[in-house]
Computed example of a mutant assay.
Amino acid sequence: MIGHLPLDEQLVALKSVLSRNEVLLEVLHRTAGLGLRGWYLTAGCLFQTVWNVATDRHPTSGIKDYDVFYFDDHDLSWEAEDRVIKTSAEAFAGLPADVEVRNEARVHLWYEQKFGAACTPYTSSEAAIDSFAATTCCLGVRLEPDGQWRVYAPHGLADVFNLVVRPNPVLAPRQVYETKTARWRRQWPELTVLGWPSESAILTRASP
Rank of each mutant, 00 (worst) to 15 (best):
I2Q: 04
H4D: 15
L7Y: 12
L11C: 07
L11H: 09
L14E: 05
S19W: 09
S19A: 11
V23R: 03
V27D: 00
H29K: 15
R30D: 05
G33C: 03
L36E: 04
L36K: 00
L41M: 09
T42E: 06
A43E: 07
G44H: 05
C45G: 06
Q48D: 05
W51K: 02
Y66F: 13
D67T: 08
D73W: 06
D75V: 08
E79N: 06
V84F: 06
K86T: 14
T87R: 14
A89S: 11
F92G: 00
G94Q: 07
E100G: 03
E100M: 03
N103M: 08
A105G: 07
R106G: 07
R106P: 08
L109Q: 13
E112Y: 01
E112L: 06
T120F: 11
T120P: 09
P121C: 06
P121T: 10
Y122V: 05
A127P: 02
A128V: 05
A128F: 11
I129K: 02
S131G: 06
F132G: 02
A133W: 03
A134W: 03
A134F: 07
C137I: 08
C138H: 04
R150N: 13
L157S: 00
V165L: 12
P167E: 00
N168Y: 04
N168E: 07
L171Q: 05
V176T: 13
E178T: 01
T179D: 12
K180V: 08
A182L: 09
Q187N: 09
L191M: 05
G195R: 12
G195D: 15
R205V: 10
R205D: 12
